[in-house]
Amino acid sequence: MTMIGGPAPRLESERLVLRGFLPKDLEPSSKLWMQEEVYRHISGKPSTRSECWSRLLNFSGMWNLMGFGYWAVEEKTTGAYVGEIGFADFKREMSVSIEGKPEMGWILSPDFFGKGFGTEAVTTALLWADHHLPFSEVVCIIAPENTASQGLALRVGFIEEEPVLFKDEKTLFYRRQLTAKAHAR
């Protein structure tokens, strides 16, 4: 048996909790993926309930099969569903192969834009990755129009590389070195 991962670890920051997904997250996740500001730069269209359910199962199963995955982000004081964040191997067809590597992604509910929650959640997830992921780097791809996520990526230490082609479209490509604390242990 080569099952390499357990469930998502629970992480906390000053104002947020990052936790593994639960079946009850289907409601807030469906609401999240109905919002144009959310899907505009990602899927380009809203997700159906069945697609959201599939995504949550995918995010959850990723932890078991890859040893990394996505978390639900909650506001600590209210328990509100703030967004979804994490690392994944989506085995995308891209002009540069990133197969097997942790690709970072983040989705934040527009209700929480402009409070620094995106930066706080991404910083928390990267701190975990620095300590626990046995990889030298994580990557991410961002649509050229998504300037907010580009700013966030640069702020947390991603470095922009040559753009890649994804679904025949130019997509921005970033890498961030991990500090290899996982290797040192």
Binding site: L22, S54, G61
Partner: peptide, 13 residues
Amino acid sequence: WYRLLRATGMWAF
């Protein structure tokens, strides 16, 4: 790949 991930996530959910 997504089907294998979902099948695995189904056990957890």
